[in-house]
Structure formats: structure tokens, C-alpha cells
Amino acid sequence: MVTAMTDTTKEKQMTDQRDSINDRVANKESESNAADNRSSMDDIHKNEEFDIEINGTVGKPFVDNVKMSSRNCDVFYGDKQAIFDVNVDIGNHEILAMIGPSGCGKSTYLRVLNRMNDTIPICRVTGEHKLDGEDIYSKKMDPVLLRARVGMVFQKPNPFPKSIYDNVAYGAKLHGLVRTRSDLDDLVEKSLIRAGLWKEVKDDLHKPGTGLSGGQQQRLCIARTIAVDPEVILMDEPTSALDPIATALIEELMIELSGKYTIAIVTHSMQQAARVSNRTAYFHLGKLVEVNETDKVFTNPEHKLTENYITGRFG
């Protein structure tokens, strides 16, 4: 099973989202196959580090100052269940990091929070999900409005095939947030400054966004997201495709942004979670195992699985 897991981590370098969804479904499959194998091979080879029962989430999943919350969250891809009964709160202006081995459902859960899973026909989400007390899956909630309020930054920088300026202006133009050209100019400038990209690109605003370096592209995507002035920003492994220097810049940016926005970040790097987040959630095979203050998770985890993961026994 350990080798199976390292195999799936190879698939970490997923090139685009569609593939990654397939992979996730495939991972689910391989896991369920693995489960069958496991029972048959029980006597020969029991993996004690990995096969520990999960009975609900341990730690402190709930907070007082709630921004977003999920109760009894299940997610299905067709017949396969990807997320099992997740209950968690995301506090106002905090950075919540989600960690766990590949295929554990953390990205899937992130996409629940702004209804990105709606774009996948076979995906079904149940449970109660709230943003500021409003049910985000209710009829009254418009996904367009929701996604303006809950922005998202993706694993691979995905600037649009437009100029830097148009990339940042995209959301504002879409939603009709600005009236005049000069307002738009201001917005673009403000967003780029906040994303720490202004100095680098201010003379090249009309060059294509795809021409920037990876780290710059990712900051452009962040600028694009904050131009709509969302309340929550979801980040799906935002630095996994970047070099360490670019990663450091993005991490600094995240901490800076947390003063104004609530941030949920999925990351593969435990160090990154430790560096930037206030709280850390550990996912395992679609279940939420433990949520605690980041310091506590990394120094004194409550659950044995969390401990095994952060000490590198698997993953």
C-alpha cells in the first residue's frame, strides 16, 4: 500500500484540472481496490501505520468567529464517494491549511466551498454548507455571486490568453463592478499592487499574461481574484508548480492577504502549512481526521494517523 501511495504521488504533477478530476476518481478506484486487497492480505502484511480507524474528527473543527462552515459533507463522483461526512468551520480572517496524502479529498472539499464541483456533471455534493450563515447550495444562492465572494486560485497558474491588464480586469468587467475606464485602471493597479506584481509589470500591462514566469503568473491569478474583492480565497496547491523563491513570495502574500480575506489553502507541503496557516486540517481517504491549531498539529497531534503522516511514515 505504501508503494501504491507513492505511485499516486507521481500523479501529483497533474497538468490540467480535468485530468486531475479523472485522477481523483481513479485514485478512489485504486483505493477501493486496495481496500479489497487489504482484507485478503490481512494476515500476511498488515500496514499498521496506515490502517487506523477514524471515528469522527478529533481536535477543534469548530470556531467562534465563523466565516464558512460545512456539516455532514459527502461528495460523490458517480457511484464513488470521495468525501465522507466532513464537519468543519473556517474562521474569519484565518488561514486554514488542508493537508493529507494525494487523493485524500482535500482538493475536492475545497471545490465544494465555491461550488466549482457544479461544473463536473457526475459530481454530487450533500450536506449543509454556509457562508456567513447563508446556505451556499440553496436555490437562492447564485453560483455566479458565490464565486465572486469566494474566489479561487488554482494549482497550475492559469492566466487567460489575454493581456495582463485584461486578466486583472476580467472579473470586474464581467460583473460590471466599475463604471469608468479610470476606475478600472485604478482597480487593476490596486489589485496588482496588493498581489505584489505591480512593480514588475507596470510597463508591460498590455503584454500577454501567459508570457510571465510561473511565479508571476500565479501572482497575476491572485491579483485577478482579489480584483473582485472576494471575502474568501480558496487556494488549491498554489505553489506546487513553482520554484522555492516564487513560493516564498506567494506565502508572504498569503499572510499579508489574511488581514483582509479569509483563506483556505490546500497544500502538499507540510512545511508550507506550518509556515502560513493558523489552523491545519488533516484529511485521510476522504475523511477529515483532525483539525487543530497549526502548532498543535505539528508538535502534538491528537490522532495517530496525523502523527504518522507528519512524521513521514507514509504519504
Binding site: 466549482m116 474566489g151 488554482f154 487567460f160 485577478r224 473582485v228
Partner: peptide, 8 residues
């Protein structure tokens, strides 16, 4: 996804 994520 990037565009949907912006609310398009």
C-alpha cells in the same frame, strides 16, 4: 476553471 472560479 479559472474563469468559472471568477464567477463567469
Amino acid at each position: 476553471d479559472g474563469s468559472y472560479g471568477m464567477g463567469a
